[in-house]
């Protein structure tokens, strides 16, 4: 296992170098000049040039990249052109918020999505299955921003139970967490249902039932464990997505997560923040994938590294 983890960590190096290079290139070749934006509307050419020098964008691209990569290796991702903060500080703060939101959304997904899929599969083609499938379909289809507004309308405006925006307490996490988790809940419910249906038709399930095992033991111990690989894979990918932030949900609930930080930085051509955020998101994806691979061994004892 340790060898496996070590190998995967080594793989991180070329992946991250690639990410550094690609984000650097993409930001530089996207139309739009940060110096023009930062110098203001009435800037003269000389002022734009002075701003470019101040931002260090007057040097050749290889030099810029070299300096950037050298500092990035030392954990210095530079300073945001437009916010004035260290990029690592900005990403750190945003990640804390996004992490909290992702956690709630994951809990919602697992607590609602998996049981919904199981019930749907076990009670196949009944009214319960119909309702569960409809709920799952709504979950994957409803746009986040619209569902978020509906939630605010109901729980903040009409019932007055929960705050409609911002951060600070656990109560602030509920509405955005549920909103963010809706899509993945629907997705996981549908996936669980189809995996469970496949599994429940296997011979060993019939054998288990024939042995006289209780219904729930068959479903959970023999059914779910075998359907689990697919579910864990998708849950893992989903966790990566959640941690990369969600601009729409974050905008509706005014949540200062990494999604909004990234999008605002793109609009402002804040190269340092864009590169930093994408780099961190890439690291998260790689680590989550590693985690998923390790979880396979837990779910399925046949898998050994």
């Amino acid at each position: 296992m340790l060898v496996f983890i070590g190998k995967r960590m080594l793989q991180l190096i070329p992946v991250l170098f690639g990410v550094l290079l690609i984000t650097f290139a993409v930001t530089r070749f996207t139309p739009g000049d940060p110096a023009e934006l930062a110098a203001g509307e009435d800037a003269t050419q000389a002022m734009i040039e002075a701003t470019r020098t101040r931002l260090g964008l007057d040097r050749s691209l290889p030099v810029q990249f070299g300096l950037y990569a050298l500092r990035a290796v030392q954990g210095d991702l530079g300073t945001s052109y437009i916010l004035g903060y260290k990029v690592t500080t900005l990403i750190g703060q945003a990640l804390v918020y996004t992490g909290q939101l992702a956690l709630v959304a994951m809990i919602v997904t697992i607590v609602l999505g998996v049981p919904l899929g199981i019930v749907s599969a076990v009670r196949r083609d009944t009214a319960i299955d119909g309702i569960a499938r409809l709920v799952a379909l709504i979950g994957v289809s409803i746009p986040n921003f619209f569902f978020g507004l509906l939630m605010i309308l109901l729980f903040s405006l009409y019932l007055g139970w929960l705050p409609s925006f911002g951060t600070g307490t656990w109560r602030h996490l509920i509405l955005p967490g549920i909103t963010l988790g809706t899509f993945s809940t629907g997705l996981i419910a549908r996936l669980t249902r189809s995996s469970m249906l496949d599994t429940l038709e296997q011979d060993y399930i019939r054998t288990a039932r024939a042995k006289g095992l209780a219904g729930w033991v068959v479903v959970y111990k023999h059914g779910l464990r075998n359907a689990g690989i697919a579910i864990v894979t998708v849950l893992g990918l989903n966790l990566g997505n959640l941690l990369a932030g969600s601009v729409l949900t974050e905008s509706v609930f005014s949540f200062p997560g990494i999604g909004r930080l990234l999008v605002n930085s793109i609009f402002n051509r804040d190269y340092a923040t864009v590169q930093g955020a994408i780099l961190v998101i890439a690291i998260i994806y790689v680590l989550v994938n590693l985690l998923v691979d390790m979880l396979y061994a837990v779910v399925d004892p046949r898998i050994r590294y």
């Binding site: 405006l157 409609s164 609930f253 005014s254």
Partner: peptide, 18 residues
């Protein structure tokens, strides 16, 4: 000065009194 980028959410926050 609270940032609420979504315009509908901003109006709702006013109506809830937040």
């Amino acid at each position: 000065f609270q940032s609420i980028p979504d315009e509908s959410a901003r109006v709702l926050a006013l109506l809830t009194g937040e």
